[in-house]
């Protein structure tokens, strides 16, 4: 796994050198600051509106970071031919894929934790406190970032950078509605379609299981531990599946 860690470190260093993360960082901090300072009818201490907006911005920005960083990994290595000297070294292709996934996940998680740090400071300055549900929400979003990174790395073995970014962002947006959409459609379908939709419901990862934002905003009590454990297992299973598919596809590539 040492080789995978070296690959991951390269991904992180390369991402730090590029400018896009800094632009996204400035943009999200600016939006959070504006949201924190906004005044409505001279009311003070409005926490829910600020939490909702900040959590939404941070979620989207970190997913964009994961997608943009992850999608360019394999196509760039192939186009610039830097992959050939790498493959000449004693490095397994599975380690290469895992390293790329690890690097993408770590950079997006790091950005997320920085954003969350700023968000928590602003939240505390508004007189609010850090709740248990917020900690759970942060943990689930980290899992979501790892899952999305694995999907993006898997797709990058199949498609170009641009196509990958489009498909992944689209999936992230629609991924939160899949369960509900399928559930609604079940009422209107025949037996065969119901079977098809139910299968699809099991196959596609449900991103809404990683979203606690509504409970965080409305200050609900923490969710039971078994729920967090189940969602963690769910994420680990899907991450393994996507990394396996990505590795198998990458192993078939003629280099």
């Amino acid at each position: 796994m040492r080789a995978a860690w070296i690959i991951a470190k390269n991904v992180i260093e390369e991402s730090i050198r590029k400018k896009e993360i800094y632009v996204l960082f400035i943009l999200s901090v600016a939006i959070m600051a504006v949201a924190a300072m906004a005044s409505f009818f001279s009311l003070t201490g409005l926490v829910k509106y600020f939490t909702e907006l900040s959590f939404l911005i941070v979620t989207y920005i970190t997913v964009i970071i994961a997608v943009v960083v992850g999608a360019r990994q394999l196509p760039t290595e192939l186009n610039s031919r830097t992959i050939y000297p790498l493959m000449a070294k004693p490095l397994k292709r599975s380690e290469f894929i895992i390293g790329k996934w690890l690097g993408t996940s770590l950079i997006s998680i790091f950005c997320f934790l920085v954003f969350e740090g700023i968000f928590i400071i602003l939240l505390l300055s508004k007189g609010s406190s850090v709740s248990g549900i917020l900690i759970q929400g942060i943990f689930l979003h980290i899992l979501q970032l790892m899952l999305i990174s694995s999907i993006v790395i898997c797709l990058s073995a199949f498609m170009t950078n641009a196509a990958n970014v489009t498909v992944s962002i689209l999936y992230f947006i629609l991924g939160h509605w899949i369960g509900k959409a399928i559930s609604d459609a079940l009422d209107k379908c025949g037996a065969f379609l119901v079977w098809m939709l139910k299968s699809l419901n099991y196959i596609i990862p449900h991103l809404d299981y990683f979203d606690l934002s509504k409970k965080i905003v409305h200050q609900w009590p923490p969710v039971p531990a078994w729920v967090i454990i189940t969602v963690t297992i769910y994420a680990v299973v899907y991450i393994s599946i996507f990394l396996l598919i990505g590795t198998l596809k990458f192993q078939r590539k003629q280099l």
């Binding site: 369960g179 099991y202 809404d208 299981y209 509504k214 609900w220 969710v223 729920v227 189940t230 969602v231």
Partner: peptide, 15 residues
């Protein structure tokens, strides 16, 4: 059973 598990998950994760 799987349907019910997912439904319970959703029930706990959403208000």
């Amino acid at each position: 059973r799987l349907d019910k598990l997912f439904a319970k998950l959703e029930y706990n994760l959403k208000p």
